[in-house]
Amino acid sequence: MAKTTDIANVLEVAPASVTQMLHKLCRQGYVKHEPYRGTILSRRGRRIARRIARKHRLLERFLSDMIGIEPEDGHDQACRMEHALSNEAEEALCKMMNHPATCPNGKRIPKCERGIPCEDCTRKALKLSDVDEGRTATISHLVSKDKDELCRTLAMGLVPGATVTVEKKMPLGGPIIVNLKGTRVAIARSIGDALRMVEAA
């Protein structure tokens, strides 16, 4: 239950404006208002709030991890960006960062509403051998368990975000020949299986 005055304080607006807006939201079914006790989000309202919080925290994660923005700055910017982010972009962001569980301040990131467990979503990312010859795909992440092999793969330039075009898959379980920024690289199938790919649309 949130009191009208508390909301007014956080948003730094007049209590009268809050009351007016709450009435409107109440009419549209997003909040429930109980006189003298306060306001609470309806089921519909909670869904939207969860979605916004999810977008907000994913954005914070992105700003801090991928481009190194300070957490406070990241929070302020995420507050503005969260409303502009499409659902599609939200989903891609979540996949790209490999389904982060918390925001940089440690708050839980709500799960998406697609109703499938994250593991399945991860598995949906293609392995290199699933990418057809002639197709281009981007590495989303690597799942190698062997540290030396992981480092070898990374040092070759097969890093998250790198784009490769599959040129040829050699028969008899032979390597996959890809074009990585103009360099041909022969990648054994098992190393290719450690690369999770997202195909370009």
């Binding site: 490999n98 982060p100 992981l150 975000g161």
Partner: peptide
């Protein structure tokens, strides 16, 4: 644990970036 991605990946990704 927090990023579900190894720190090596992040370091190399940033170098290539």
């Amino acid at each position: 644990r927090r990023h579900q991605e190894s720190i090596e990946s992040h370091i190399q990704r940033d170098r290539f970036g």
